[in-house]
């Protein structure tokens, strides 16, 4: 089996503020698939994403992008290969949503690709269902609206590799599905998507592979059905879980094991 490798971490160790956050993590991101990074808080998901994005330099091990070592890339080249959605989108001056999305086109300025700027920005605003917010200042939007505008900006960058750090954290049910659908569409078009998720249900439903992180290393990596076993998840999350199968679709559903005593008071009365 051959895959087009868009990014890969090989045995990466990385220290932040004296703490070893990644300890020999290896993972690859392939064209045409959605890969989820999941794991408990502090397991190193965001740090692994940052290492793959060439933001952080590993202490040992290698990060490759499109087969080339991360440190050999120039900042401007990277911007045309991968787009990154930060966990907390911020903005210091009162730019409008449309202006923010148009910033995603910056890497293509003065290239033939720039001709399509207007059309791409409009399409990305529509894809994320924020077209009607286009003229509003970004700072005045709600958390969920900001998250979708930020995603539209990242999509507007039109890179082969998308890296999203918790894109669904601030979103309601409907928009969580919207974001994951957008990820699937991009993978369907041949791009690679790597996404940090907390919701294992979303990961199971929309991702081709999931990588489960435990204390800075990959505990398991593969299709959700194979990786999401009660034994592994209970151990990694230090919380007993049940894994059921969706009655209509062949899709694992992960639920924490709850004792009856923790049920709401009203029901037992």
């Amino acid at each position: 089996m051959t895959h087009t490798e868009l990014a890969a971490a090989v045995d990466v160790t990385l220290t932040l503020g004296g703490r070893e956050v990644l300890r020999g993590a290896s993972v690859d991101v392939r064209a045409g698939e959605v890969l989820a990074l999941v794991g408990p808080n502090g397991a190193g998901k965001s740090t692994l994403l940052a290492a793959l994005a060439a933001d952080l330099r590993p202490a040992s091990g290698t990060v490759r992008l499109a087969g080339r070592e991360a440190r050999a890339w120039r900042v401007a080249e990277l911007a045309r290969h991968r787009a990154v959605l930060p966990q907390h989108p911020a903005l210091t001056f009162p730019f409008t949503a449309a202006e923010v999305v148009a910033m995603g086109r910056a890497p293509w300025a003065r290239t033939p690709m720039a001709e399509a700027d207007g059309a791409i920005v409009a399409a990305c605003l529509a894809d994320c269902e924020v077209a009607e917010l286009a003229g509003r200042p970004f700072a005045e939007l709600s958390g969920g609206e900001k998250a979708r505008v930020a995603l539209a900006r990242v999509l507007a960058q039109r890179t082969a590799l998308l890296m999203l750090d918790e894109p669904t954290a601030a979103l309601d049910l409907r928009h969580q599905e919207l974001v994951m659908r957008v990820c699937r569409e991009r993978a369907g078009a041949g791009d690679g998507v790597v996404v940090v998720l907390h919701d294992l249900g979303l990961a199971a439903a929309h991702c081709d592979r999931v990588a489960v992180l435990r204390e800075g290393a990959i505990a398991a990596c593969g299709p959700p059905r194979e990786v999401f076993t009660p034994a592994l998840l209970s151990e990694v999350y230090r919380q007993p879980v049940d894994v059921l199968t969706h009655p209509a679709r062949d899709e694992p559903i992960v639920l924490p094991v709850r004792s009856p005593r923790t049920a709401p008071l009203g029901e037992s009365a």
């Binding site: 994005a53 900042v75 990277l78 911007a79 930060p86 210091t92 001056f93 910056a106």
Partner: peptide, 20 residues
């Protein structure tokens, strides 16, 4: 000017968009 616009997103996002 354009690079300063991108800096409004923060340092890391600006770098993601190709700004040194």
């Amino acid at each position: 000017a354009r690079r300063l616009d991108l800096l409004a997103l923060g340092e890391r996002p600006a770098r993601h968009l190709g700004v040194d």
